[in-house]
Design a protein around this nucleic acid. Structure first.
Lengths: 118, 118
DNA sequence: CGGCATCCTGATTGATACTG
DNA sequence: CAGTATCAATCAGGATGCCG
């Protein structure tokens, strides 16, 4: 395939995926399709409300997810992955697979270090 | 495949790819195998020497590229992609392909906006 | 419940100048 | 040629508090 640096479109995908919590949010929505705000928050240990809102807004802005508000008390807001968002799955899978192999690579590296020290 | 959020290894790949100039550097080295510093700089419009050095160091630290210094005057330093670094190619290709499609998506979106305005 | 507004900190990036 | 050093600017991320 043609992938000249001048025609590099890698940044587009990277721009959408970059954000401390976006990959995990997308993985959850890819697995579940739809989740409400509080469910997401509970599924992602350590995230603050601000950051969850923030990352969701950015993903929504890119049409990767949709936001549905149920006008009721207490409020209920559901987030869903879009068809377009689902198209990111191959990238996330590729990254996950690479990351798994990367773990092994790091283990090998630290073992080599141990050998050198001894 | 197994891709539970708790077992998410996506961040590893993302961490290596994130950096304003890393993807373009990797694409160039994947295509050329080896390039010297000045060639890289010329191939990447807008990058400063500092940032090129910076990003190369980080990639080297992760064993994605290697740095070979020729002790001569004027200095010559060559950067090459490692076998390990080549394993990132599927991710970059997947992102590039997605980015290309993304361009079309954005075009459609702006057209819809135009229709709504008229 | 699901936000938003404010303030704050550290990391990232950049401009510029200098060097072996 | 291939850097390093310094300083400045920008930005992502986080802590906290208030609100309908």
């Amino acid at each position: 395939m043609e992938m000249q640096p001048e025609l590099c479109r890698v940044e587009d995908a990277l721009g959408i995926l970059v954000g401390k919590w976006k990959p995990i949010i997308l993985l959850i929505l890819l697995q579940n399709g739809t989740k409400r705000f509080s469910d997401l928050k509970r599924s992602i240990p350590g995230i603050t409300q601000k950051m969850l809102t923030n990352q969701l807004r950015e993903l929504e802005e890119e049409d990767i997810i949709t936001r549905k508000v149920y006008p009721q008390v207490p409020p209920k807001v559901e987030y869903s992955i879009t068809e377009y968002g689902k198209s990111l799955e191959p990238i996330l899978v590729a990254m996950h697979e690479w990351g798994t192999a990367h773990t092994l690579h790091k283990m090998k590296k630290s073992q080599q270090t141990l050998f050198r020290i001894e």
